[in-house]
């Protein structure tokens, strides 16, 4: 059962990731990325990471991708581009690099002994949110605060970047 669900989700994830790269219309690309994100959220559930699955949907599907769609609509980019402007001159380089990368990764994964038994952590499965919350506010307190500062800096940076220069009103 779990294996079947895994393969279905994996197929959805890979297929829509490929479509994300191939679609010429940015809106279609964005929607296929949403499909990938949902499949990954499903895989998080399979891996017992319930909290991350929910956060994945809230942050990525609910906010980030809506922001992408918003910008595409705002800049009126939602029309298909001509083929030559879609794929750059580096197509061959890209494909070669991609194959090399994939082979390297697969060998790296294949040569390790990862088929062994999975370590059991009962608390992580049954009390997922509590476990993560405790870790975040104890061992990872400093990174947590830094992350909040990063978000604040990003917030201010975005306002500065997008604000139009207004004539001085003196």
């Amino acid at each position: 059962m779990e294996t079947a669900v895994f393969y279905v989700l994996a197929t959805i994830a890979v297929a829509s990731a490929v479509l994300l790269v191939l679609f010429r219309n940015p809106v279609y690309s964005a929607l296929s990325l949403v499909a990938t994100l949902f499949a990954v959220a499903g895989l998080f559930v399979l891996l017992n990471a319930y909290f991350l699955a929910a956060v994945q949907i809230i942050v990525y599907a609910g906010a980030v991708m809506v922001l992408f769609l918003f910008v595409i609509m705002l800049l009126n980019l939602g029309h298909s581009e001509a083929l030559e402007s879609t794929v750059g001159r580096y197509r061959l380089t890209g494909v070669i690099f991609l194959c090399a990368l994939l082979v390297a990764q697969l060998t790296a994964v294949g040569t390790r002994q990862l088929r062994g038994p999975v370590a059991e952590n009962e608390a992580l499965r049954t009390e997922n949110v509590q476990t993560l919350g405790k870790l975040l506010y104890t061992d990872f307190l400093f990174p947590f605060e830094v992350a909040s500062i990063i978000l604040l800096v990003a917030l201010i940076g975005v306002v500065v970047l997008v604000k139009r220069e207004t004539p001085e009103t003196t």
Binding site: F51, A54, I58, A61, G62, N128, V129
Partner: peptide, 12 residues
């Protein structure tokens, strides 16, 4: 277990 988060996810 993640009921409230689920609601936020769905509403988003």
């Amino acid at each position: 277990d993640i009921g409230v988060l689920y609601i936020l996810a769905v509403s988003s």
